[in-house]
C-alpha cells in the first residue's frame, strides 16, 4: 500500500498511491492510515484521486480510519472517482463523511476559513 503524505499548517494530506482499495489491501490501508492520523494534526484529508475502485472491504477500511482518529481530529475525503463516489452514495456513507471535489478546494477552503 503506497500512502504518501504532505503536511500543511493544520492539515495533513494523505495521498493513496494505489488505484484500488480492495480486499487485497484493505487491512494494510487501515493500519497505515491509523499511524498517519496518530501522528497528524487536527485535520486529515484523504486524497483519493488515484483510486479508481473501492469495494466493500475498502469502504470498511475508510470507515475504520474515520473511527480511529483522535478525539477532536477530523478525517475528510477528496477527489473521489465516479465509481468510488457511487459506492459511498449507495451505502449512504456520503452522509457520514465530508467529501471535497478536490484537494485544492479542500485546502483552499481551509485557508479561506481561517
Amino acid at each position: 500500500m503506497k500512502l504518501t503524505h504532505q503536511d500543511f499548517d493544520d492539515v495533513r494530506v494523505v495521498c493513496v498511491g494505489e488505484n484500488r482499495i480492495d480486499a487485497a489491501c484493505a487491512i494494510q490501508f487501515k493500519d497505515e492510515m491509523r499511524a498517519l492520523s496518530d501522528s497528524g494534526p487536527a485535520r486529515i484529508l484523504l486524497d483519493l484521486q488515484n483510486v479508481e475502485f473501492l469495494d466493500s472491504s475498502g469502504l470498511g477500511a475508510v470507515v475504520a480510519a474515520l473511527k480511529a482518529v483522535r478525539h477532536g481530529q477530523r478525517l475528510e475525503l477528496a477527489a473521489l472517482h465516479p465509481t468510488v463516489q457511487r459506492v459511498f452514495h449507495l451505502t449512504r456513507m456520503d452522509t457520514v463523511f465530508t467529501i471535497h471535489t478536490s484537494v485544492a478546494t479542500a485546502v483552499e477552503g481551509i485557508a479561506n476559513a481561517s
Binding site: D55, S56, G60, V63, K67, V87, L90, T91, V96
Partner: peptide
C-alpha cells in the same frame, strides 16, 4: 441498508457487500 444514524464509534465497518 446499515443504520448510519449513530455515533462514529458505532459505524459499521462491514456488511456493505451484499447490500451493494
Amino acid at each position: 441498508q446499515a443504520n448510519l444514524n449513530c455515533d462514529i464509534a458505532d459505524l459499521p465497518e462491514g456488511g456493505f457487500g451484499w447490500f451493494l
